[in-house]
Structures are given as C-alpha cells and as structure tokens.
Simulated assay, not measured.
Amino acid sequence: MPIPLRSDFNASELRALARKTKDGPQARRLLALAAIYDGGTRTAAARIGGVTLQIVRDWVVKFNAQGPEGLIDRKPAG
C-alpha cells in the first residue's frame, strides 16, 4: 500500500510551485508528485522524475514531513 500524499496540497498548487522555483531538481520532484495527485501511478511519477519507485517513495515521505521545502537538495554537513 503506497504512502498517501498530504491533503493540504493539490496538483495545480504543486505545478504552480514548480513554475516559480529556480531549483530544477525541486521542480522535477514537484511535477512528479503532481502526477500522483492527479491520480497517476507511482510508476508514472518515477518516469516523470527519471528515478526509481524507491526514490519517489522517499520524495513522498519528505514532502509529507516538510512540504515543498523538503524536496530541495540539502548540502551535507561538514
């Protein structure tokens, strides 16, 4: 059973955020999750994002915990 996406966002909001961001990887992740909100499969989202299903799952977990900011690459500490 896939992890559901948080309910305080929808596909059109994620697409709008993807258009506004200057972070390419975040935009790609937002668009992949927007496809899931539209009823697409996780496999289709993985294709959009150019990643595996496990990576899409990781994005969902980060997005659910931190919102769109969770999809920005962080610099490693140190």
Rank of each mutant, 00 (worst) to 15 (best):
48 I>L: 09
28 R>E: 11
70 G>S: 10
9 F>D: 05
21 T>G: 01
78 G>D: 15
2 P>I: 07
59 W>S: 02
24 G>P: 07
24 G>W: 06
67 G>C: 04
72 I>V: 15
26 Q>F: 02
56 V>R: 00
15 R>W: 04
14 L>W: 00
3 I>C: 06
38 D>T: 05
47 R>Q: 14
7 S>D: 15
57 R>P: 08
27 A>L: 08
20 K>M: 10
56 V>I: 11
63 F>K: 00
58 D>A: 13
40 G>E: 14
6 R>S: 04
39 G>E: 07
30 L>C: 01
47 R>H: 13
47 R>F: 07
44 A>P: 07
2 P>S: 09
69 E>F: 05
13 E>L: 11
2 P>L: 09
68 P>N: 04
8 D>C: 07
38 D>Q: 07
68 P>W: 01
28 R>K: 15
24 G>Y: 10
61 V>N: 12
2 P>Q: 08
36 I>E: 00
70 G>A: 09
17 L>T: 03
64 N>D: 05
21 T>V: 01
68 P>Q: 02
63 F>A: 02
41 T>C: 07
36 I>K: 00
57 R>S: 15
17 L>I: 05
40 G>C: 11
10 N>T: 06
40 G>V: 06
58 D>T: 13
23 D>F: 09
46 A>N: 02
42 R>N: 09
24 G>K: 11
60 V>S: 04
57 R>W: 14
69 E>N: 13
55 I>V: 13
55 I>K: 12
71 L>N: 01
70 G>Y: 09
41 T>Q: 07
48 I>T: 05
62 K>W: 09
10 N>K: 10
43 T>S: 14
24 G>L: 12
29 R>V: 01
42 R>H: 14
75 K>I: 13
47 R>T: 14
12 S>D: 14
44 A>H: 15
72 I>K: 15
20 K>E: 15
37 Y>Q: 08
1 M>F: 06
44 A>S: 15
46 A>G: 05
71 L>K: 00
46 A>F: 02
67 G>P: 03
42 R>E: 14
10 N>W: 08
50 G>A: 04
64 N>A: 03
18 A>G: 03
6 R>C: 03
24 G>Q: 12
17 L>M: 12
6 R>M: 03
67 G>Y: 04
19 R>W: 10
34 A>P: 02
10 N>M: 06
8 D>P: 04
55 I>N: 10
31 L>N: 05
38 D>F: 03
22 K>Q: 14
61 V>L: 12
49 G>T: 04
52 T>G: 12
20 K>Y: 08
11 A>H: 07
